[in-house]
């Protein structure tokens, strides 16, 4: 069994319809797949399709009107509330989507320090510098407030925060959105090296082309359901070896394949 195992996981929201009637609005349905140690699994889906909800469900930070069904396992044991409290930050860590996930009123150095304490790995000054240096962040970045960081620096800062506790699973939620090609490559290389060091990496993204060179497998989502899971080396040529027609259509639609005009990302 993989390190992270999802079994028929679905996520929905209770919504008010009119004044009194509540109904459940399903956004993710029946997701089952696993992420093993040493591999990057890329979860691909359209923007706004609710992919991030899966990350939030794993870490238990969905809004209060969310309903989660199904089973999530970490290293074989079911992730319930008590288990989650034990492993959050220590065995699994999140790289969030945007800058708004850093406290705007607190300098980054302090926020890394807090993350260290939370993960049970208190950092001294030297360790902090070493950690930051690994992700190409200097003294100035450490002393900055989050809004003073560039997009790429912020992402690297968040990867640094995520790896403070040396977790076995890293879930990265759209870590490259809004970055230029160079910064994107940098971030994905960092994630690849985490996987190569034996961690399980779940990479949530909307851009197939960007992540193909780095991912081991690609989980393709369509309308809240899992369409297919394909090894990334099958995305080659005209995609003849891809089992799912939808995955093939996505692959063919990529601009560098130029089989169909327009329609870049899914």
């Amino acid at each position: 069994m993989s390190f992270l195992q999802l079994e028929r996981v679905s996520v929905g929201f209770m919504r008010y319809e009119g004044i009194f009637r509540q109904h459940e609005l399903g956004l993710l349905e029946d997701l089952s797949f696993g992420v093993g140690r040493g591999e990057i699994v890329a979860l691909i889906g359209a923007s706004g399709g609710g992919k991030s909800l899966l990350a939030h469900a794993i870490f238990g930070i969905l809004p209060r009107n969310a309903v989660v069904n199904g089973t999530i396992r970490i290293d074989g044991s079911v992730l319930d509330d008590t288990h989650r409290n034990r492993v959050r930050g220590r065995r699994m860590a999140l790289v969030p989507q945007s800058l708004s996930h850093l406290d705007p009123m607190t300098r980054c150095r302090k926020q890394i320090g807090w993350a260290g304490q939370r993960a049970g790995h208190p950092l001294d000054r030297r360790k902090t510098e070493a950690l930051l240096a690994r992700y190409g962040l200097d003294e100035r970045a450490a002393n900055a407030f989050p809004h003073e960081l560039s997009g790429g620096m912020a992402r690297r800062m968040m990867i640094a925060i995520a790896t403070v506790g040396d977790p076995d699973l890293v879930v990265a939620d759209e870590p490259t959105s809004g970055l230029d090609t160079e910064a994107t490559g940098g971030i994905l290389r960092h994630l690849r090296s985490l996987a190569d060091a034996g961690k399980a990496v779940l990479l949530i993204t909307h851009s197939l082309a960007e992540v193909l060179p780095f991912a081991d497998r690609v989980a393709v989502m369509r309308g809240g359901r899992l369409e297919a899971i394909e090894p990334s080396d099958r995305f080659a040529g005209a995609g003849e070896t891809l089992a799912s027609p939808y995955a093939r259509a996505l692959w063919i639609a990529l601009p560098q394949n130029a089989f169909t005009p327009g329609g870049a990302e899914c």
């Binding site: 996930h101 705007p104 925060i161």
Partner: peptide
């Protein structure tokens, strides 16, 4: 407490009290 940074702190393994004091009360 519903803001992205408070949720992220929870995801880092922070206890409710930790989030309430470090992020909540400060902000």
């Amino acid at each position: 407490m519903q803001s992205d940074f408070a949720l992220y702190a929870r995801a880092q393994g922070a206890s409710l009290a930790d989030v309430a004091v470090r992020h909540g009360a400060r902000n």
